[in-house]
Design a protein around this nucleic acid. Structure first.
Length: 300
DNA sequence: CCTTCATATTGGTTGATTTC
DNA sequence: GAAATCAACCAATATGAAGG
Protein backbone atom coordinates (compact mmCIF):
# COMPACT_ATOMS: atom_id res chain seq x y z
CA UNK A 1 0.00 0.00 0.00
CA UNK A 2 2.68 2.59 0.73
CA UNK A 3 4.55 3.34 -2.45
CA UNK A 4 8.08 4.54 -1.94
CA UNK A 5 9.08 7.83 -3.48
CA UNK A 6 11.54 6.33 -5.92
CA UNK A 7 8.81 4.23 -7.42
CA UNK A 8 6.51 7.22 -7.68
CA UNK A 9 9.21 9.29 -9.33
CA UNK A 10 9.98 6.58 -11.85
CA UNK A 11 6.36 6.02 -12.68
CA UNK A 12 5.65 9.71 -13.26
CA UNK A 13 8.74 10.02 -15.36
CA UNK A 14 7.84 7.09 -17.51
CA UNK A 15 4.22 8.05 -17.97
CA UNK A 16 5.12 11.54 -19.15
CA UNK A 17 7.99 10.51 -21.37
CA UNK A 18 5.89 8.05 -23.34
CA UNK A 19 7.21 4.88 -21.78
CA UNK A 20 5.10 2.20 -20.23
CA UNK A 21 5.06 2.47 -16.46
CA UNK A 22 3.67 -0.96 -15.74
CA UNK A 23 6.99 -2.70 -15.31
CA UNK A 24 7.68 -0.52 -12.27
CA UNK A 25 4.55 -1.86 -10.64
CA UNK A 26 5.12 -5.46 -11.65
CA UNK A 27 8.52 -5.46 -9.99
CA UNK A 28 6.97 -4.33 -6.72
CA UNK A 29 4.16 -6.87 -6.94
CA UNK A 30 6.67 -9.64 -7.55
CA UNK A 31 8.81 -8.61 -4.62
CA UNK A 32 5.91 -8.48 -2.22
CA UNK A 33 4.58 -11.77 -3.49
CA UNK A 34 7.88 -13.62 -3.25
CA UNK A 35 8.50 -12.29 0.24
CA UNK A 36 5.08 -13.47 1.18
CA UNK A 37 5.70 -16.92 -0.30
CA UNK A 38 8.83 -17.41 1.71
CA UNK A 39 7.33 -16.41 5.01
CA UNK A 40 4.15 -18.34 4.30
CA UNK A 41 5.97 -21.55 3.47
CA UNK A 42 8.09 -21.08 6.53
CA UNK A 43 4.95 -20.99 8.61
CA UNK A 44 3.66 -24.04 6.79
CA UNK A 45 6.75 -25.99 7.75
CA UNK A 46 6.40 -25.22 11.43
CA UNK A 47 2.66 -25.71 11.42
CA UNK A 48 2.96 -29.19 10.07
CA UNK A 49 5.89 -30.12 12.31
CA UNK A 50 4.08 -28.92 15.39
CA UNK A 51 1.09 -31.02 14.51
CA UNK A 52 3.12 -34.19 14.03
CA UNK A 53 1.25 -37.12 15.45
CA UNK A 54 -1.91 -35.18 15.91
CA UNK A 55 -4.98 -36.24 14.04
CA UNK A 56 -6.33 -32.73 13.56
CA UNK A 57 -6.14 -30.64 10.41
CA UNK A 58 -3.03 -28.58 11.07
CA UNK A 59 -3.68 -26.19 8.23
CA UNK A 60 -7.11 -25.35 9.53
CA UNK A 61 -5.88 -25.10 13.09
CA UNK A 62 -3.07 -22.67 12.33
CA UNK A 63 -4.14 -20.75 9.24
CA UNK A 64 -7.82 -20.45 9.98
CA UNK A 65 -7.21 -19.64 13.61
CA UNK A 66 -9.91 -17.15 14.66
CA UNK A 67 -7.29 -15.09 16.48
CA UNK A 68 -5.70 -14.10 13.19
CA UNK A 69 -6.75 -10.88 11.48
CA UNK A 70 -9.87 -11.54 9.43
CA UNK A 71 -8.13 -10.60 6.19
CA UNK A 72 -5.62 -13.36 6.71
CA UNK A 73 -8.25 -15.91 7.59
CA UNK A 74 -10.10 -15.10 4.39
CA UNK A 75 -7.03 -15.45 2.22
CA UNK A 76 -5.92 -18.64 3.92
CA UNK A 77 -9.28 -20.15 3.17
CA UNK A 78 -9.00 -19.18 -0.46
CA UNK A 79 -11.27 -16.15 -0.44
CA UNK A 80 -10.69 -12.45 -1.02
CA UNK A 81 -12.45 -9.92 1.18
CA UNK A 82 -14.39 -8.39 -1.66
CA UNK A 83 -16.07 -11.69 -2.45
CA UNK A 84 -17.12 -12.01 1.14
CA UNK A 85 -18.52 -8.52 1.50
CA UNK A 86 -20.32 -8.82 -1.81
CA UNK A 87 -21.78 -12.17 -0.89
CA UNK A 88 -22.82 -11.39 2.66
CA UNK A 89 -23.12 -7.63 2.77
CA UNK A 90 -20.83 -7.56 5.73
CA UNK A 91 -17.18 -7.65 6.61
CA UNK A 92 -17.71 -8.40 10.26
CA UNK A 93 -15.12 -10.73 11.63
CA UNK A 94 -17.60 -13.42 12.57
CA UNK A 95 -19.06 -13.31 9.07
CA UNK A 96 -15.62 -13.56 7.54
CA UNK A 97 -14.74 -16.51 9.74
CA UNK A 98 -17.92 -18.33 8.86
CA UNK A 99 -17.49 -17.69 5.14
CA UNK A 100 -13.88 -18.77 5.35
CA UNK A 101 -14.64 -22.03 7.11
CA UNK A 102 -17.36 -22.84 4.63
CA UNK A 103 -15.11 -22.06 1.73
CA UNK A 104 -12.25 -24.06 3.13
CA UNK A 105 -14.44 -27.11 3.62
CA UNK A 106 -15.84 -26.76 0.13
CA UNK A 107 -12.38 -26.40 -1.35
CA UNK A 108 -11.12 -29.36 0.58
CA UNK A 109 -13.95 -31.48 -0.71
CA UNK A 110 -13.25 -30.45 -4.28
CA UNK A 111 -9.62 -31.34 -3.86
CA UNK A 112 -10.37 -34.68 -2.25
CA UNK A 113 -12.69 -35.55 -5.09
CA UNK A 114 -10.00 -34.67 -7.56
CA UNK A 115 -7.34 -36.63 -5.75
CA UNK A 116 -9.40 -39.74 -5.12
CA UNK A 117 -10.47 -39.78 -8.71
CA UNK A 118 -7.29 -41.64 -9.46
CA UNK A 119 -6.35 -39.65 -12.50
CA UNK A 120 -2.70 -40.56 -12.31
CA UNK A 121 -1.85 -37.16 -11.01
CA UNK A 122 0.39 -36.22 -8.18
CA UNK A 123 1.95 -33.07 -6.89
CA UNK A 124 3.71 -32.87 -3.59
CA UNK A 125 5.50 -29.90 -2.18
CA UNK A 126 8.61 -30.49 -0.21
CA UNK A 127 9.67 -27.55 1.90
CA UNK A 128 12.90 -27.24 3.75
CA UNK A 129 13.84 -24.47 6.11
CA UNK A 130 17.04 -24.49 8.10
CA UNK A 131 17.28 -27.94 9.64
CA UNK A 132 13.62 -28.86 9.30
CA UNK A 133 11.86 -30.25 6.29
CA UNK A 134 8.36 -31.44 5.58
CA UNK A 135 6.57 -33.11 2.74
CA UNK A 136 3.01 -32.13 2.05
CA UNK A 137 0.40 -34.53 0.82
CA UNK A 138 -1.22 -33.96 -2.53
CA UNK A 139 -4.27 -32.40 -0.93
CA UNK A 140 -2.20 -30.18 1.34
CA UNK A 141 -0.10 -29.05 -1.56
CA UNK A 142 -3.13 -28.01 -3.53
CA UNK A 143 -4.58 -26.10 -0.60
CA UNK A 144 -1.35 -24.21 -0.18
CA UNK A 145 -1.04 -23.48 -3.88
CA UNK A 146 -4.58 -22.15 -3.92
CA UNK A 147 -3.83 -19.87 -1.01
CA UNK A 148 -0.84 -18.21 -2.61
CA UNK A 149 -2.80 -17.74 -5.81
CA UNK A 150 -5.53 -15.92 -3.90
CA UNK A 151 -2.93 -13.90 -2.05
CA UNK A 152 -1.39 -12.78 -5.28
CA UNK A 153 -4.72 -11.48 -6.47
CA UNK A 154 -4.95 -9.41 -3.33
CA UNK A 155 -1.46 -8.00 -3.78
CA UNK A 156 -2.06 -7.21 -7.42
CA UNK A 157 -5.37 -5.47 -6.89
CA UNK A 158 -4.04 -3.48 -3.99
CA UNK A 159 -0.89 -2.38 -5.71
CA UNK A 160 -2.55 -1.12 -8.88
CA UNK A 161 -5.09 0.71 -6.83
CA UNK A 162 -2.45 2.35 -4.67
CA UNK A 163 -0.41 3.40 -7.68
CA UNK A 164 -3.33 5.10 -9.35
CA UNK A 165 -4.36 6.94 -6.22
CA UNK A 166 -0.92 8.05 -5.20
CA UNK A 167 0.33 9.15 -8.57
CA UNK A 168 -2.48 11.15 -10.14
CA UNK A 169 -2.00 14.45 -8.33
CA UNK A 170 1.80 14.65 -8.43
CA UNK A 171 1.60 13.64 -12.06
CA UNK A 172 -0.56 16.64 -12.86
CA UNK A 173 1.58 18.92 -10.75
CA UNK A 174 4.65 17.75 -12.62
CA UNK A 175 2.99 18.41 -15.94
CA UNK A 176 1.99 21.90 -14.89
CA UNK A 177 5.47 22.68 -13.69
CA UNK A 178 6.92 21.35 -16.90
CA UNK A 179 5.09 24.06 -18.82
CA UNK A 180 5.62 26.68 -16.18
CA UNK A 181 2.02 27.15 -15.19
CA UNK A 182 2.21 29.65 -12.29
CA UNK A 183 1.66 27.99 -8.96
CA UNK A 184 -1.52 29.95 -8.20
CA UNK A 185 -3.06 28.42 -11.30
CA UNK A 186 -2.61 24.85 -10.24
CA UNK A 187 -2.56 24.96 -6.44
CA UNK A 188 -4.84 22.29 -5.06
CA UNK A 189 -5.64 23.72 -1.65
CA UNK A 190 -8.85 25.42 -0.78
CA UNK A 191 -10.97 23.12 -2.84
CA UNK A 192 -14.56 23.17 -1.72
CA UNK A 193 -15.90 19.82 -0.60
CA UNK A 194 -17.91 19.47 -3.76
CA UNK A 195 -14.62 19.31 -5.64
CA UNK A 196 -13.39 16.43 -3.59
CA UNK A 197 -14.21 13.89 -6.22
CA UNK A 198 -12.19 15.77 -8.82
CA UNK A 199 -8.66 14.58 -9.36
CA UNK A 200 -7.15 17.97 -10.05
CA UNK A 201 -8.00 21.37 -11.34
CA UNK A 202 -6.24 24.23 -13.04
CA UNK A 203 -7.30 27.84 -13.23
CA UNK A 204 -7.78 29.78 -16.44
CA UNK A 205 -6.92 33.46 -16.80
CA UNK A 206 -10.57 34.37 -16.59
CA UNK A 207 -10.86 32.56 -13.28
CA UNK A 208 -12.57 29.37 -14.41
CA UNK A 209 -11.82 26.21 -12.47
CA UNK A 210 -11.03 23.57 -15.03
CA UNK A 211 -11.78 20.12 -13.74
CA UNK A 212 -9.21 17.57 -14.70
CA UNK A 213 -9.53 13.81 -14.52
CA UNK A 214 -6.53 11.51 -14.62
CA UNK A 215 -6.46 7.83 -15.47
CA UNK A 216 -3.56 5.48 -15.82
CA UNK A 217 -5.87 2.77 -17.07
CA UNK A 218 -5.25 0.71 -20.15
CA UNK A 219 -7.78 0.31 -22.91
CA UNK A 220 -11.20 -1.00 -22.12
CA UNK A 221 -12.96 -0.28 -18.85
CA UNK A 222 -15.78 1.80 -20.29
CA UNK A 223 -17.43 2.22 -16.91
CA UNK A 224 -14.33 3.97 -15.77
CA UNK A 225 -14.47 6.44 -18.61
CA UNK A 226 -18.19 6.91 -18.18
CA UNK A 227 -17.66 7.90 -14.57
CA UNK A 228 -15.30 10.56 -15.84
CA UNK A 229 -17.59 12.09 -18.40
CA UNK A 230 -20.44 12.13 -15.95
CA UNK A 231 -18.50 14.74 -14.04
CA UNK A 232 -18.01 16.91 -17.08
CA UNK A 233 -14.34 17.69 -16.73
CA UNK A 234 -12.60 20.18 -18.97
CA UNK A 235 -9.55 17.97 -19.31
CA UNK A 236 -9.24 14.19 -19.41
CA UNK A 237 -5.70 12.92 -19.20
CA UNK A 238 -4.88 9.24 -19.48
CA UNK A 239 -2.16 6.76 -20.17
CA UNK A 240 -4.08 5.02 -22.92
CA UNK A 241 -7.39 5.89 -24.53
CA UNK A 242 -9.56 3.92 -26.90
CA UNK A 243 -10.97 5.52 -30.03
CA UNK A 244 -14.35 5.44 -28.45
CA UNK A 245 -13.06 7.33 -25.43
CA UNK A 246 -11.63 10.04 -27.67
CA UNK A 247 -14.76 10.40 -29.75
CA UNK A 248 -16.88 10.61 -26.66
CA UNK A 249 -14.59 13.27 -25.23
CA UNK A 250 -14.75 15.33 -28.39
CA UNK A 251 -18.51 15.04 -28.49
CA UNK A 252 -18.74 16.36 -24.94
CA UNK A 253 -16.20 19.07 -25.61
CA UNK A 254 -13.66 17.56 -23.23
CA UNK A 255 -9.99 18.08 -24.02
CA UNK A 256 -8.27 14.70 -23.98
CA UNK A 257 -4.60 13.87 -23.62
CA UNK A 258 -3.16 10.43 -24.23
CA UNK A 259 0.31 10.34 -22.76
CA UNK A 260 1.24 6.97 -24.15
CA UNK A 261 1.04 8.20 -27.70
CA UNK A 262 2.92 10.34 -30.20
CA UNK A 263 2.32 13.91 -29.28
CA UNK A 264 1.91 12.70 -25.76
CA UNK A 265 2.69 15.24 -23.08
CA UNK A 266 3.09 18.02 -25.62
CA UNK A 267 -0.59 17.99 -26.20
CA UNK A 268 -1.02 19.18 -22.66
CA UNK A 269 0.42 22.54 -23.62
CA UNK A 270 -1.96 22.84 -26.55
CA UNK A 271 -4.81 22.14 -24.18
CA UNK A 272 -3.57 24.78 -21.77
CA UNK A 273 -3.52 27.31 -24.58
CA UNK A 274 -6.93 26.31 -25.82
CA UNK A 275 -8.36 26.75 -22.34
CA UNK A 276 -6.57 30.02 -21.69
CA UNK A 277 -4.27 28.82 -18.91
CA UNK A 278 -1.00 30.75 -18.55
CA UNK A 279 2.06 28.69 -19.48
CA UNK A 280 5.28 28.82 -21.41
CA UNK A 281 7.48 26.42 -23.33
CA UNK A 282 9.33 23.69 -21.56
CA UNK A 283 12.81 24.98 -20.91
CA UNK A 284 15.54 22.53 -21.77
CA UNK A 285 15.62 18.79 -22.03
CA UNK A 286 12.57 16.85 -20.92
CA UNK A 287 14.34 14.26 -18.81
CA UNK A 288 16.48 16.83 -17.08
CA UNK A 289 13.48 18.94 -16.24
CA UNK A 290 11.56 15.95 -14.99
CA UNK A 291 14.35 15.07 -12.62
CA UNK A 292 14.51 18.63 -11.32
CA UNK A 293 10.78 18.90 -10.83
CA UNK A 294 10.44 15.54 -9.15
CA UNK A 295 13.23 16.42 -6.80
CA UNK A 296 11.37 19.60 -5.98
CA UNK A 297 8.17 17.70 -5.27
CA UNK A 298 9.55 14.75 -3.39
CA UNK A 299 12.89 15.92 -2.17
CA UNK A 300 16.02 13.91 -2.75
C1' DC B 1 -13.91 -20.72 -40.28
C1' DC B 2 -10.65 -19.02 -37.43
C1' DT B 3 -7.98 -15.39 -35.52
C1' DT B 4 -7.59 -10.62 -33.97
C1' DC B 5 -9.07 -6.55 -31.98
C1' DA B 6 -12.01 -3.58 -29.27
C1' DT B 7 -15.33 -3.36 -25.90
C1' DA B 8 -18.03 -5.25 -21.86
C1' DT B 9 -17.95 -7.44 -17.52
C1' DT B 10 -16.13 -8.97 -13.34
C1' DG B 11 -13.32 -8.81 -9.47
C1' DG B 12 -9.15 -7.43 -6.78
C1' DT B 13 -7.97 -3.28 -3.96
C1' DT B 14 -7.34 1.98 -1.48
C1' DG B 15 -8.71 5.76 1.16
C1' DA B 16 -11.93 9.14 3.16
C1' DT B 17 -16.00 9.36 5.98
C1' DT B 18 -19.62 7.92 8.59
C1' DT B 19 -21.93 4.79 11.70
C1' DC B 20 -22.21 1.59 15.31
C1' DG C 1 -11.94 1.16 17.39
C1' DA C 2 -14.19 -1.95 14.31
C1' DA C 3 -17.30 -2.09 10.70
C1' DA C 4 -19.73 -0.16 6.87
C1' DT C 5 -20.21 2.75 2.81
C1' DC C 6 -19.01 4.76 -1.33
C1' DA C 7 -16.36 6.54 -4.91
C1' DA C 8 -12.19 5.75 -6.94
C1' DC C 9 -8.04 3.02 -8.49
C1' DC C 10 -6.77 -0.66 -11.60
C1' DA C 11 -5.99 -5.72 -14.29
C1' DA C 12 -7.69 -9.92 -16.13
C1' DT C 13 -11.04 -12.40 -18.56
C1' DA C 14 -15.18 -13.03 -21.51
C1' DT C 15 -17.65 -11.74 -25.42
C1' DG C 16 -18.79 -10.28 -29.85
C1' DA C 17 -17.72 -7.83 -34.10
C1' DA C 18 -14.48 -7.26 -37.71
C1' DG C 19 -10.90 -9.11 -40.89
C1' DG C 20 -8.38 -12.62 -43.72
Amino acid sequence: MPLNTDAKKNIIKKVISNQDYRDEVLVIIDEIFLDYCISFFKQVVYAKIDALGEKSDWYKKVFLNPDLPKEQIAINSGLNMKSITNAFNSSKKEVVIQASYDNYNRLQKTINDLVSNGNNFEIKLSIKFKDVAVDLTVAESLIVINTIAVKRAEIRGGMWSAVGKQVEKPLMTTLCMLFNVPFEYHAQDGNPDSFREVDFYVLSKDGKKLRTEVKLMGKGNPESADAIFARQPAIFLADKLSDKNKKQAEMLNVQWIELRNKGGYKRFQEVLNALNVPNSDLNGDLNTRLDEILKEIYGE
